[in-house]
Design a binder for these strands. Structure first.
Lengths: 242, 242
DNA sequence: TAGATTGTTAATCGATTAACAATC
DNA sequence: TAGATTGTTAATCGATTAACAATC
């Protein structure tokens, strides 16, 4: 059923893929999973574009950065495309993650199915609080921070999730930078600097909150100016945080 | 000390400000707050550009969408610029927020200084669990979901923060859509649809996690290809989630 | 075959960067 | 005044959209 022709994912990518494209991939992943769940087997770029508030040629351009995943006259096979996008995003790598900071945020995260859905397994939590060390949340044990390095070495940890107080974030990052950890998912809100062997992705919840405040303000501002349509065009976004 | 000349924030903006610019504003806000904290009184576009991994003309262009905040030969007054950006983003509006869902995530959020730093006050939490209703977290009371509409009406709630299970998200959103609430900050990971009078900003933590997975994978891929510098250029970002 | 829809090139649009006159 | 740095226009670059031939 699937085109056996030129599959560019196996070969090196033609050119550097722009970050505009990369940033859309997790959204494709999300919508495709939803389609899969809904039992849809095929989809055209036009249909998907309508769902996602994009244009059909944009979707075709994006996907063609990685390979010819569709079929002329047919469209895209949902399951096939989903697995391809998963591969591109590294969801098939089976990354192992630890959560550093077993407070409310850490506990909230460990319970979500988000990790499993993306091929990431949360194998441990760490904390400094003796009352929390030894506890178990959703089947994940809390270890002492003293065991951080040895645990990482022994278990081949790929990702560290920082849900600890700002004050100790920098110090912990330094410790991680010399471990086998390859990525840090940073919820502390502070900048951690750059490290050669560790990728850092920051979650700036405050930025997101401010975006909401801005949109509320902009909406009421344009209400005030009777007949004005300033910024109304922004309303046609789907509210996704870019 | 400050230029008394053309201040465009008071008047209507010349033209629609692009979303590329809007999305950078919370970052400016963050860096300026940091500069303020560090006691810096003035900064040039060049200095700020270096800090933020942008270019100087880009910063000047961005800021000039809203007004002439700087002074030739001097640069920008940090405090003045900070208050201007705050105003543009609506941090001076004094928005009132409620947190719907007093689980771990809700409790983690209510404790952060994020809200106060952005002029938002969290005035209540809501939950369906009788064991949680009546509790108090960081000085914020948990109310029954039955009281949602009446509380919003009586207290002029602007923002609802959804930290409840996916399953009830849609129903609660419907209820909110006919209230005075003007913005929803959605942590549930599902799409809530669009409403005429309510702005929705989604926090897709899963997307952010996938970005990290992609970067880890891309880094190890380019290691594999000896001598190749594919995608290495992406390393010069500051890791900020766009 | 006819219809549909992709993959891909060319055209357009928008955002970033360069340059420089204005001016503090 | 001289030096510095903004505000702003013009040039470049990159991303999106339009168009269409290829082909399932």
């Amino acid at each position: 059923m699937q085109s056996s022709k030129s599959n560019k994912t196996d070969a090196a990518q033609k050119q550097v893929v722009s970050s505009a494209v990369i940033n859309r991939l997790p959204r494709y992943f999300r919508y495709l999973r939803e389609l899969l769940r809904a039992g849809k087997t095929r989809i055209s770029s036009g249909e998907l574009a309508k769902m996602m508030n994009l244009t059909a040629p944009q979707i075709r351009q994006d996907l063609n950065c990685f390979g010819g995943f569709g079929q002329q006259g047919y469209g895209y096979n949902v399951r096939y495309l989903y697995t391809k996008i998963s591969d591109i995003l590294g969801a098939a790598e089976g990354y192992r993650a630890i959560i550093i900071g077993a407070g409310n945020l850490g506990r909230a995260l460990v319970r979500t199915p988000m990790f499993a859905a993306r091929g990431v397994s949360t194998i441990a939590m760490f904390d400094v609080d003796k009352n929390v060390i030894g506890c178990n949340f959703s089947g994940v044990n809390v270890y002492s921070m003293d065991e951080l390095e040895s645990f990482c070495d022994e278990n081949g940890v790929d990702i560290a999730i920082l849900t600890l107080p700002k004050t100790s974030a920098k110090e912990v990052t330094e410790r991680l930078s010399t471990s086998c950890v390859r990525g840090i998912w940073n919820f502390t809100g502070i900048e951690l600097g750059t490290y050669e062997h560790v990728k850092i992705v920051n979650v700036h919840l405050g930025d997101s909150l401010m975006t909401l405040c801005y949109e509320i303000k902009a909406a009421s501002d344009s209400d005030d100016i009777a007949g004005s349509d300033i910024d109304e065009k922004n309303n046609e976004t789907d509210g996704t945080n870019k």
